[in-house]
């Protein structure tokens, strides 16, 4: 019936600009849908913590006294800055400045890595205080704070790590000259993800550390 063999492993090369515009739109739209499902996923953790906060204010107060806010403030500031770097990186590629984009995205990845590093430092301090994931080894005064603290923040940290890896991949594509002022959906899509991770952290920070 068909004379043409189709190599399925290779997507058809697309030259039609309209087709490409649609594909770009597809990618961004798909990213928004993915983020919608991520919102729900984090909602479970955030909701779980919020319930705990309402039911056991005593344990949270004790934990807050131990937690301190200095380290995490620096961390939050860094993550916000990384989001700003992301915006600048996108702006550079829209002006066709690949090197500028690489520089800003490099800063994004570096700040993201620092964030995860500092979070690890904080985890160590907390575990010395006796706030642990395993409820059996957690100090009584903190109640179930440990698990409800570590689960969402660790889950968020994993998202940051994935984001950093993704950022490096975007940079590699950029260095190969795959992006330009006419073609930057790859950067934009990653940007959506990174800003999302940032927004989640703002919610977690407010809920866990400030309230």
């Amino acid at each position: 019936m068909s004379e043409i063999t189709v190599h399925e492993s290779k997507a058809p090369v697309i030259h039609d600009p309209q087709e490409e515009a649609r594909r770009n739109d597809n990618h961004k739209f798909a990213m928004w849908l993915y983020l919608a499902s991520e919102v729900i996923l984090f909602a479970v953790f955030i909701g779980g913590y919020a319930l705990f906060r309402l039911n056991e204010p005593e344990a949270v107060h004790n934990a807050h006294d131990g937690l301190g806010i200095g380290l995490v403030s620096i961390n939050t500031f860094m993550l916000l800055t990384s989001s700003w770097c992301m915006v600048m990186g996108l702006r550079e590629i829209q002006r066709d400045n690949v090197r500028g984009m690489l520089r800003w995205l490099g800063a994004t990845a570096a700040l993201g890595t620092l964030f995860v590093g500092l979070q690890w430092v904080e985890y160590r301090e907390l575990s010395h205080l006796g706030i642990t994931l395993d409820i059996a080894s957690s100090v009584e005064a903190y109640g179930g704070f440990g698990m409800r603290f570590y689960a969402p923040t660790f889950f968020h940290g994993v998202h940051v790590v994935i984001g950093v890896i993704w950022c490096l991949l975007v940079m590699r594509r950029g260095a190969r000259g795959e992006f330009s002022s006419k073609r930057y959906t790859g950067v934009e899509t990653f940007g959506l993800y990174w800003h999302f991770v940032d927004v989640v952290w703002i919610i977690l920070f407010t809920l866990i550390y400030l309230i």
Binding site: L33, A36, S37, E38, V39, I40, L41, F42, A43, V44, F45
Partner: peptide, 11 residues
């Protein structure tokens, strides 16, 4: 699927 499945995933 997009709005409900993540809820199960969280659980």
């Amino acid at each position: 699927q997009i709005l409900a499945t993540p809820f199960l995933a969280g659980g």
